[in-house]
Design a protein around this nucleic acid. Structure first.
Lengths: 107, 107
DNA sequence: GGCATCGTACGACGTACATCGAACAAACGC
DNA sequence: GCGTTTGTTCGATGTACGTCGTACGATGCC
């Protein structure tokens, strides 16, 4: 588990990349779950967000979210706690998170 | 040119589909152009939006935008005038369009 | 009717993506 | 130190996507 996890600076967050990261139902579900929980570990997410995905797939999705600038990762023992970069996103793409997370009627 | 162009009803607009449609720089440019112009023809867009894309590619992107529910097409002679379904989008995904179109600092 | 114009549909091609299982690396507990 | 837990990485595989040129269909003009 190397520490060289790439997280873009606020100024380097690209809108198309963010939208691409959000364009997947699984990642959308993960992001909403993270938003309401605040912080969660990868394994916990795989179970709690009740997406029927394998461990490696969830890990992959978390990587996409992180590299798009949507999430941040914190190391605690053998776990990694992931959280949404709400403040940074509000600076980079104002209103986007609220619009995407706040919608209830759509999957 | 058949008239059977599919445009989803407001209730059938899916957030992941919309986000997927927005996740392409070319489509984002087209949408912004449409937003400021109000209405434009396919050929006009291909030139005005200064994306170096072929006619068929622009047509393809317009199809993606339309099927996602983002745009509406109106038939006028041999041309098709495309416009953004701003009102419908505001109902389906409130705040999303504003967040995506209003960002200036990102491509 | 005949011809130009506008846009779509069709194949084709290369690339990117979502998904999985298995193998690996790191850190903890005993 | 050893095994367990946690998460990443590595192929591999099938699917989807972006792009193009060309061929087609529909409409307007002479």
């Amino acid at each position: 588990m190397s520490e060289d996890v790439f997280e873009p600076a606020v100024d380097d967050i690209q809108l198309p990349t963010v939208l691409g990261a959000l364009a997947d139902p699984a990642r959308l579900a993960v992001l909403r779950r993270l938003h309401e929980v605040g912080e969660a570990a990868c394994g916990t997410l795989a179970i709690t967000a009740n997406l029927g995905l394998s461990k490696s797939t969830v890990s992959h999705h978390l990587k996409v979210l992180r590299e798009a600038g949507l999430t941040s990762t914190r190391f605690v023992g053998t776990s990694r706690l992931v959280s949404v970069r709400e403040h940074d996103m509000e600076i980079a793409c104002p209103g986007l998170l609220a619009a995407v997370i706040g919608v209830h009627t759509h999957a």
